[in-house]
């Protein structure tokens, strides 16, 4: 295996298990720490066309952007009244921040906000390993059973990587769960904007969905 192929495979696994934005920030930081900005530029040239979120993060880094500190306050405000949150797509940095901001469940009691992750759409991901990172705080759901969490106190959440005119760039599983049969079974359909950097290459891996598939787009602002 060539170094390039290994690099590509490594990033693909990281993106599957951490999420594309989370993996991109971790990788770019490690790259810059090890070999400076020139290596970040090289990384962008090598993988950017295949990984548009990584491309955007590399470009942002070279222009002075640094890893965001996810701020779940606005999301928590939007979740008022929600008791079960179905998360579609995975971004470790943002889910970690949300979990850390929530009150810890009382021993033996149910948490005020249950979190479920729809474990679909990333064939390389070892979902047991992904969920193990959350120490039981995030429950496993699939496309076949996430509607078991439907209800007036249940919300859907996905991550948004960019916006166009009337569109948002999201992960493909969002299209599978936001259909007309499902969207009126959940209190709200939230997008959490995580990238905040312009996508400069064709956003493969992502899909363009109508912005009104979301009832609210939450910006990640501190």
């Amino acid at each position: 295996m060539t170094a390039f192929a290994a690099q590509r495979q490594a990033f693909r696994l990281a993106a599957a298990e951490l999420g594309m934005a989370s993996a991109a920030w971790v990788t770019v930081e490690a790259c810059a720490d090890a070999a400076g900005d020139a290596a970040v530029a090289e990384l962008r040239d090598a993988l950017g066309r295949d990984w548009p979120v990584l491309d955007a993060v590399c470009a942002g880094w070279l222009q002075g952007a640094r890893r965001p500190r996810p701020a779940p306050g606005a999301l928590q405000a939007a979740l008022a009244g929600t008791q079960r949150l179905v998360i579609v797509g995975h971004e470790a940095l943002w889910i970690d921040a949300l979990v850390a901001a929530l009150p810890a469940p009382v021993a033996g009691g149910a948490p005020a906000l249950r979190l479920g992750l729809v474990c679909e759409g990333a064939p390389l991901a070892d979902w047991d390993r992904v969920l193990a990172n959350q120490a039981g705080r995030v429950e496993r759901l699939g496309l076949a059973d996430f509607q078991a969490w439907a209800g007036p106190r249940s919300s859907l959440l996905t991550f948004v990587y960019g916006q166009g005119q009337g569109t948002v760039f999201v992960l493909p599983p969002w299209l599978r769960v936001s259909g007309s049969d499902v969207r009126l079974q959940f209190r709200q359909l939230l997008g959490w904007s995580v990238l905040g950097l312009p996508l400069q290459v064709y956003p493969r891996w992502l899909v363009s969905a109508a912005a009104d598939t979301l009832t609210e787009l939450v910006e990640d602002v501190a």
Binding site: Q83, R84, Q147, A148, W149, A150, G151, P152, R153, S154
Partner: peptide, 13 residues
Amino acid sequence: LAAAAEPDADEGH
């Protein structure tokens, strides 16, 4: 999934 839902529970209704 409906069969598993509790008839009087808030969720699922």
